[in-house]
Write a protein that binds this DNA or RNA. Structure first.
Length: 278
DNA sequence: CGTTACCTGAAA
DNA sequence: TTTCAGGTAACG
């Protein structure tokens, strides 16, 4: 569900609610089998209880909580959250009505709690003393100054997979997923099935601008809620109303009127205009 | 490099 | 009953 714009919406909503708050306790359900791949509910709770949330950042599709240092030996600086397909981080008053599929709970010192809801149980929570491991698996931030046309061209020239598959690879760029890749390729007029190293500089230039613009639009519209995505208060985004190709199979292209087609590329459902995208 | 597995529920 | 879902890691 969540790609860069969705995760960024959650982050920016949570910052004023969580910064400076202390974690009192953590509960993890027995059936949250994959949530803590490198820990146990007991160890995790012991490690973060008593910490203060100093900051909340986003890196690609990851949320990164900076925790205050503790006197205890167990004192990781970072709590790294990935929502995968159906994860939600909901900030609620403890007295608010229950939410569906809540599999973990973080109690805060101001009467609020962070509820972790995850229908499909793919999401992960990890603790780390440094962000080096995270950085190793991620490319640049597509909305940052470090991401240039030249970077993108270099990354595309190195690969012979379909350009869509390369853009989905988080080592190429951190934060693009199936919605925004389809949207960016449409806006740039590039066929998603093209071999990446056949994309020419003029096309890469358009693609670079398109990636930024579709992500910025996504953030401005508070993310796309095609099915499961909800922000930290449980509300849906609106960007699903503004997409040009994603899940518009059989509908007319807004530019040329041709029918939007769907195919499989890089193992993912792919939407494109057969006329506008070359 | 492409395919599969991980889960659950909705839709075809 | 089968297929599909916005993600990623582990396969071959």
């Amino acid at each position: 569900l969540p790609e860069l714009p969705e995760v960024e919406t959650i982050r920016s909503d949570l910052v004023p609610l969580l910064t400076g708050k202390r974690i009192l306790s953590v509960w993890v359900a027995d059936d949250a089998t994959r949530l803590l791949p490198h820990s146990t509910p007991e160890l995790f709770a012991l490690s973060v209880a008593g910490s203060t949330i100093e900051a909340l950042a986003r890196r690609g599709k990851y949320l990164v909580f900076t925790l205050s240092p503790q006197s205890s030996v167990l004192s990781p600086r970072f709590w790294i959250v990935h929502l995968r397909m159906t994860g939600r981080l909901l900030c609620r008053a403890a007295s608010d009505p229950p939410d569906a599929y809540v599999r973990a709970l973080v109690t805060l010192d101001d009467g609020h709690e962070l509820r972790w809801s995850d229908l499909r149980k793919f999401g992960t929570w990890e603790l780390a003393d440094s962000l080096a491991d995270l950085e190793r698996k991620l490319g640049p931030e597509p909305l940052g100054d470090m991401f240039t046309v030249e970077d993108l061209q270099t990354m595309l020239l190195r690969r012979k997979a379909p350009v869509k598959a390369v853009l989905l690879d988080q080592k190429t760029l951190a934060g693009l997923g199936n919605i925004y890749v389809d949207e960016a390729l449409y806006e740039a007029g590039v066929d998603p099935r093209r071999v990446a190293n056949s994309v020419e500089l003029a096309e890469t230039t358009r693609l670079h601008a398109a990636i930024r613009s579709v992500l910025e639009q996504g953030v401005a519209n508070r993310g796309a809620s095609f099915s499961d995505y909800a922000d930290a208060s449980g509300a849906k985004g609106s960007n699903q109303l503004y997409v040009r190709v994603f899940r518009r199979t059989g509908k007319p292209c807004y530019t040329c009127g041709a029918m939007i087609e769907r195919c499989k590329t890089g193992g993912r459902s792919t939407h494109f205009c057969p006329v506008c995208q070359k």
